[in-house]
Design a protein around this nucleic acid. Structure first.
Lengths: 234, 234
DNA sequence: GCCGAATATTTGGTATCCCAAGTGTTAGGG
DNA sequence: CCCTAACACTTGGGATACCAAATATTCGGC
């Protein structure tokens, strides 16, 4: 059954991979701003998100802010409280393990499919992401390294050639970046990504599964450590 | 200063029955209406979804419709086209296989976790869902049977005790109900659910995995059949 | 110090207006 | 007769203003 794999990107308002021509609604800009502020900690978990305030800050009206807030809610970064202001989501321990369980299933699938369906062009893109990540990692640019690591994962889901998987993984990824915080284990992640890349290139599904499991474990440990830090600092 | 026309003298000309007991935003009502109309085929794939029209039809303003449409987009039932009207999503063959792949990973996880973490109370709820499904199935009430089957799946994700998984599965489930159409293999699904229930009750993870895989296969076949029908009828 | 009423806030919704960009139609040139 | 360019229309995105209802907060009484 030759599924006519069109690269018809299903639209979704998650910023990033929508690749709309040039048109970016104001609401999307607001959403990205807000997301960044949440992820980098400018807006702490539990803090109020008042439509009018945000609208005033960003110089737009309430509507784009409402839209952005709703999108962020469906992304799981914001908790809505009907009739009252929304708040930046606070992740409980069980939220974290929930995320880990789901992510485990989805990322394992992504890596496996990527190994099976990788193309030459896709592989090149993956290699490029990895090179940039490693370069950033070596020169100690944590921000860039983390960003490129995220790109690596994004590209893996593209290799998997499953739009739905990409979409879901994107949502999970934004929560993840947040939960991971500004970690500094740059080289560990770079190394694991390198091995993953090799296994995908070799189409070694078995090894990809193993490496994915280990990568997940590393990530889980890092999240736990970050949360302990955050709890301790408080 | 434009002559501000006070249009507040009209109380509530539409509806009238303002049952204000529980909090359900208008936008949610609109979303549910629209979703039902999409799933049951009232609104065909590809048909236009014009905000102003829908607003007029349902007797609400454009905003709740906009909100609903956005939610439906993130649910994957609607395709937005920047600057133009949105359309009811058309699923390509690759969309279907994408969905099946992801669903496979997620539902397998859900069934497994449900088997591991089932509680007495949860099991009772699952049994109740199943009884109702079987009753509806036997008296030939397809609509009720399908609805109860969906409840069964919902309850399974609740047993799995993973809110994120529930959320994701819910989204997938709505696409699925749509793709499955008004199938009439009531007894097959009822039977498979029965076996799944038994395995979950017995905490037999191994068997749950097997049954889940088979259930997925049945579902895939049904979707394929439905799509062939739809394609043929056209 | 604790509880309850008055007050302040804030969202969800409605009603208009406006604009830019895409759509559909029509008229004109080859 | 067909192709294309101009035009009017449609549509979503945004802004502003206002209202109702529910929730927070504050302040006063006990």
């Amino acid at each position: 059954m030759p599924a006519e794999r069109r690269t018809d990107d299903l639209g979704c308002e998650n910023g990033g991979m929508a690749t709309a021509e040039e048109f970016t609604p104001e609401s999307e800009r607001v959403m990205n701003t807000l997301r960044d502020e949440i992820i980098d900690g400018t807006r702490a978990p539990g803090s109020k998100l008042v439509e009018r305030e945000i609208a005033a800050e960003l110089g737009v009206s309430r509507l784009p802010v409402r839209d952005a807030l709703r999108s962020l809610v469906s992304e799981g970064l914001v908790t809505p409280r009907p009739r009252t202001w929304a708040v930046v989501r606070e992740f409980s321990q069980s939220d974290v393990s929930d995320l880990n369980e789901v992510r485990s299933a989805l990322e394992t699938l992504a890596f496996r499919l990527a190994a099976e369906r990788r193309t030459r062009a896709g592989l090149a893109k993956l290699r490029a992401d990895l090179d940039e990540q490693q370069a950033a990692s070596e020169r100690g640019d944590g921000g860039a390294a983390r960003r490129k690591a995220a790109d690596f994962h994004q590209t893996v889901t593209e290799l998997a050639d499953n739009a739905l998987l990409s979409e879901l993984d994107g949502i999970l990824q934004s929560r993840l970046r947040w939960l991971l915080g500004q970690h500094d284990d740059l080289d560990v992640f770079a190394h694991e990504h390198e091995e993953l890349y090799l296994a995908i290139e070799a189409r070694d599904v078995q090894r990809v599964d193993e490496l994915a499991a280990q990568h997940l474990a590393t990530s889980r440990a890092k999240i736990a450590a970050h949360r302990r830090n955050a709890a301790g600092a408080e």
